[in-house]
Design a protein around this nucleic acid. Structure first.
Length: 261
DNA sequence: TTTACTGTTAGGAC
DNA sequence: TGTCCTAACAGTAA
């Protein structure tokens, strides 16, 4: 369920298990309708080694010192695993990098919303995509500029990768739940203090999820993530969790303690 | 069998 | 020109 924490966990797995090994082969699985590197692009990587990783929002990059970067986006259901020789293949593997000794980096994506491509320059790529600052490292002022001024629903602002890169549906809801803000509130109507609260909350939430390796079962029981069902009891007041579509996304919130401004 | 889904983006409305 | 919203993408699982 990939948002920033899953992308960071994936980057870490790549960092730990896929660097400094010579690439001997690249295999594609069933990739109809998916964007994947062309044969010439794949051939460019054969014989090289990855030496570094980078992540911006939900976008993952793996690169060598002077070669191109491989960009992986997990989409809606993608995941990355490093496998050693002898480990069984899973289903829905779309892209495999084989290293010497049959060490493998797998990109698994049942729903095929993810993609993989070669990128020459990470900064230029981020600029071209129009991505905002990374949600984990953005400062107070930049956050206020990015999210504070817009006229649409505050939840839509949090979800906009152009304003702020990395927050998805789940952690946008979690942020608003913790800060007591109705997801439909116009961002420009929020008092400055509330915008700061949102920044702190989103950063703390994302960092906490990253710290668990994006294992939701290790997150505290009073988080909204464990109560995303209409009719569940609110864990912060006597209210009831309610479901509503905001900005085209399913949103869970508590109308009792999440107020409009 | 029907419905919902964590992300991104093209295209249209305002 | 800019901002915002909706629909569509593909496949699975409840």
């Amino acid at each position: 369920m990939p948002e920033l924490p899953e992308a960071e966990a994936a980057r870490q797995r790549i960092e730990d298990g896929a660097l400094h090994r010579t690439i001997t082969d690249i295999r594609l699985g069933e990739v109809r309708h998916m964007d994947m590197p062309s044969k010439p692009d794949r051939d460019r990587l054969i014989g090289t080694q990855f030496t570094r990783t980078h992540r911006h929002g939900k976008y993952i990059f793996v690169g060598s010192v002077d070669g191109p970067w491989l960009h992986i986006h997990l989409g809606m259901a993608g995941s990355v695993r490093v496998m050693t020789a002898g480990q069984a293949e899973a289903k829905y593997i779309r892209f495999t990098i084989v290293f010497e000794g049959n060490h493998r980096l797998h990109f698994r994506d049942p729903r095929k919303f993810g993609h993989v491509e070669l990128v020459e320059d990470v900064e230029a790529f981020i600029t071209a995509k129009g991505l905002g600052p990374d949600a984990l490292t953005i400062g107070d002022n930049a956050f206020a500029r990015a999210v504070g001024g817009t006229r649409g629903a505050v939840k839509s602002a949090l979800l906009s990768q152009k304003k702020l890169a990395g927050i998805g549906n789940l952690w946008a809801d979690e942020t608003l739940y913790r800060t007591g803000i109705d997801p439909e509130t116009r961002a420009c109507d929020l008092p400055t203090g509330k915008v700061t609260d949102m920044h702190r909350a989103s950063r703390d939430i994302l960092q906490a999820v990253v710290d668990t390796g994006a294992d939701y079962s290790k997150l505290p029981g009073d988080w909204l993530i464990h109560h995303r069902a209409a009719g569940d009891d609110c864990t912060r007041c006597d209210g009831t969790i309610t479901k509503k579509t905001v900005g085209g996304r399913t949103s869970y919130f508590c109308p009792d303690h999440q107020s409009a401004f």
